[in-house]
Design a binder for these strands. Sequence first.
RNA 1: GCCGAGAUGGCCCAGCCCGGUAAGGCGCGAGCCUGGAAAGCUCGUGGCGGUCUCCGCCUCGGGAGUUCAAAUCUCCCUCUCGGCGCCA
Length: 420
Amino acid sequence: MLDVNIIRQDPEMIRQMLKNRNYTDDKLNSFLNADKEWRILTDKGNALRKKRNDFSQLISGLKGDEKKKAIDEMRLVSDEINNIDLKLTELDDIRNECVLNIPNIPHASVPTGKDADDNLIVGEYGKKRKFDFEPKEHFDIMESLDIVDFERGVKISGSGFYVLKGDGARLERALINYMLDVHRIQGYKEIFTPAVINRNAVIGTGQYPNLKDDMYWLERDDMWLNPTAEVPVTNLHREEIFDRNELPISYTAYLPSFRREAGKRSDTRGIVRVHQFNKVEMVKFVEPEYSIDMLDELRDNAEDVIRGLELPYRVLLLCTGDMSFAASKCFDLELYAPGGNRWLEASSCSCFTDFQARRAHIKYRPEPHLKSEFIHTLNGSGLALPRTMVAVLENYQNKDGTVTIPKVLRKYMQDQEIIG
RNA sequence: GCCGAGAUGGCCCAGCCCGGUAAGGCGCGAGCCUGGAAAGCUCGUGGCGGUCUCCGCCUCGGGAGUUCAAAUCUCCCUCUCGGCGCCA
């Protein structure tokens, strides 16, 4: 959520920002109206409270009729306060609802644009391979190698779930280990968190309520299946205050992620869009002044994973209209998949400024005697497993139907060089 | 799942029985003192609002209730720590 003081100080800037992000300014207008009234009423209420407190003080020293009289007078004040409080609660609810629905302010370096077509292609890296045969799509490769079982995935869970078998399962495990090791060497501390998380956590990073229909909910215990490790890892430090010398903190975490993907109909074939997928995530907690620079570092850390795998990829700087709600700046990393001749989003690296920290109450003290301030958070995938698997299989496929294992993964697969 | 103990500002802790508007310590900072430091002493150190060198309100895990008045009494909930039970 945004700092309400920023909205108060420069509502026109917010209005322009909402326009750039394809939001209406309804919430802004409602906020401004409710806030104005709230401030006037708060003042009035406080004055009455003062009056009541004085009465209360007075009453403690009175007896008999004088006391009764004072109590009666005070009742009138109390009734008035109650009425104002009722109205204040109403106004506060409106304000909160509005603020929670106003997205983060994009960083100055973010291009203004309407949709995905306006995203800026920062660069294309790696060489697209020239095939002397027609490259197959990943699901065909996987089925002919017998390293996947779509039917039984459906049998035990439902559509959108799949089973990896044999070298497919081993490749998955190798990729996870490889990614975690890359990030560990980059200086990230490895974390393994619960995959079932509570309501406060999904509220803390903003998945609830915005994305609640896209998460699996365990009604009996009011718990949620992890939608992305960003949630448990960021919430590790919810309601904590750091000393300055503890920052920056860099975590990497492998965790299965669950998405209901309600209403999505695209990419139903294969493993590009599924309900459960593994992901290695990077999360950073940093001092505000460094956060934007840290985003470049984070992105580079994710790119290292791709470069190591020697996959062709491109980097997109998302425009204002295509960025997610909480992000101030965001890069997408897309892997090239020759079988379907398409780019697959395998990582999204974002700087959230204080937007998440404000909501999750994560602070730091710039100096011991100064008051605490919100830190900045960043996160990015490094990488999402299924799409990486697709890119590996399609780029490394051979004419005879086998798949060469990328060099960096071989040590995780007992030096095996080929699948098939 | 059962029984008991607990949750108080950045941290520690008093107050609760017996209701009157959060005491003290640590840490940190400013000042005094000093050749400099330590010690000592004084002041400051949660949030919101305003007519913003000042004033007011709110805040004792969360919520509801009793009362003129709740950290304090009553009820419900959450979490933590013990003990018992169950169990990979």
